[in-house]
C-alpha cells in the first residue's frame, strides 16, 4: 500500500522535475496542470457562471428596458453552435473562420511590423542619448494622436483597404512597444554597463548582452499592452474600411439587425485577444526565466 502510494507520488512528481529542461509548450502544460489542481478553476467558473445568469436575467427573464434589444445568452449560444444558423454565422460555417482568420492575419502582420520597428528603435533611443535627442520630441507629438484621427490619412495614403487597416492596427501597437522598450533600457542599472565596459565588452556586445536582455522584461510588458491596442485599432479600422473581419462583422450585423451575431463576434474577439496575450506572456516568461524564478518558487 505504502509502496503504491509512493510510486504514484513519484509518477506525479516526475513530470515537473523533467519539464524545466524542455521548452515553452511543456511549461504551458505544467502551468495548466497546476492551475487545474488548485481551487482557482472553480472560482473562475463561478465568476463566469454568475455573469451568464445576470445576463440571462437582465435580457430574457426581467426584460429590463435598457437591455431589451440585446440577445440573451441562450439565444447567442444557440446561434453560435447551430448547424443551420439563422444569420449564417456559427462555428460550423466557413464564413465565421474567414472573419477570424483575416482579423488574426491583420493583427499578426501589424503586430510583427510594430515589434520589428518599435523594439529596435526603442532600445536605441534608450541606449544612445543622441538618438533619443533626435527622436523624442517627434515621438511625443505623434504618440498622443488618437489612432482614429489617422483614419482619413490612412485611407488616402494606402492603396486599398487591406493596407490601410494594417497600417492603423500597426499605429495602435507601435507606440506602446516603442515606449516600453525605451523605458526598459532606462531601467537597467548603470552598474551593469560599467561592469561590462571594464570587462572589455565592445559596443555591439553591450547591446546584445546588456541592453537587450536587460530591457526584455519591459519589452514584453510593452508587447502585451501593444497586442491589446492592436486588436482595439483593428476593430476600429475594420468597422470603417473593412470587407471582412470581426470588426466588420460586428458593424455589418448591426446594420442588418442580426444582433446575436454582434455578440458572437464580440465574444470571439475576447477569446482571440486573450489567446494572443497569453501566447506573448508565455513567450516572455520563457525568455525571462531569470526574472520569473526570482518571484516564484
Amino acid at each position: 500500500m505504502t509502496e503504491t502510494a509512493s510510486h504514484s507520488l513519484t509518477a506525479l512528481a516526475s513530470p515537473s522535475s523533467i519539464l524545466p529542461k524542455v521548452g515553452l509548450l511543456a511549461r504551458l502544460g505544467r502551468n495548466l496542470g497546476r492551475w487545474l489542481a488548485s481551487s482557482n478553476p472553480w472560482l473562475n467558473l463561478l465568476g463566469l457562471g454568475g455573469f451568464l445568469i445576470l445576463w440571462h436575467l437582465l435580457t430574457t427573464t426581467l426584460k429590463v428596458p435598457l437591455f431589451a434589444k440585446l440577445p440573451g445568452p441562450w439565444e447567442t449560444v444557440k446561434e453560435w453552435f447551430s448547424l443551420n444558423p439563422v444569420y449564417g454565422i456559427s462555428i460550423f460555417t466557413l464564413e465565421y473562420y474567414q472573419h477570424i482568420g483575416l482579423s488574426c492575419l491583420r493583427v499578426f502582420l501589424a503586430f510583427l511590423l510594430a515589434t520589428g520597428l518599435g523594439v529596435p528603435l526603442g532600445l536605441l533611443m534608450g541606449w544612445k542619448k543622441t538618438f533619443s535627442d533626435y527622436s523624442f520630441p517627434l515621438l511625443e507629438i505623434l504618440r498622443p494622436i488618437p489612432m482614429l484621427a489617422w483614419v482619413p490619412l490612412a485611407i488616402l495614403m494606402w492603396p486599398g483597404r487591406e493596407s490601410s487597416i494594417v497600417f492603423l492596427t500597426f499605429l495602435g501597437s507601435f507606440f506602446a512597444t516603442l515606449l516600453n522598450s525605451w523605458l526598459g533600457v532606462k531601467s537597467i542599472d548603470e552598474a551593469y554597463f560599467r561592469a561590462a565596459k571594464c570587462l572589455g565588452a565592445s559596443e555591439s556586445l553591450i547591446f546584445r548582452k546588456i541592453v537587450w536582455p536587460g530591457a526584455m522584461p519591459y519589452v514584453f510588458t510593452g508587447l502585451q499592452i501593444s497586442v491589446g491596442y492592436a486588436w482595439f485599432s483593428l476593430v476600429a479600422g475594420e468597422m470603417l474600411a473593412g470587407e471582412f473581419g470581426l470588426g466588420y462583422l460586428i458593424w455589418d450585423s448591426y446594420i442588418l439587425v442580426q444582433y446575436p451575431v454582434i455578440v458572437i463576434a464580440m465574444l470571439t474577439l475576447g477569446l482571440v485577444g486573450s489567446i494572443s496575450s497569453l501566447l506573448i506572456r508565455s513567450l516572455g516568461n520563457f525568455l525571462i526565466r531569470w526574472k520569473v524564478r526570482e518571484s516564484g518558487q
Binding site: A191, Y192, K197, G214, K291, E294
Partner: peptide, 28 residues
Amino acid sequence: GPDKDRLVVFQETALFPWLTTYENVAYG
C-alpha cells in the same frame, strides 16, 4: 577609460541577472 586591468567589485552586486553564475564568471 575603463579597462580589464582595473576591475571594480561593486557595492551592490553587479552580476548580470540574466546570466548564470558560470556565464557571469566566464563573461570577461
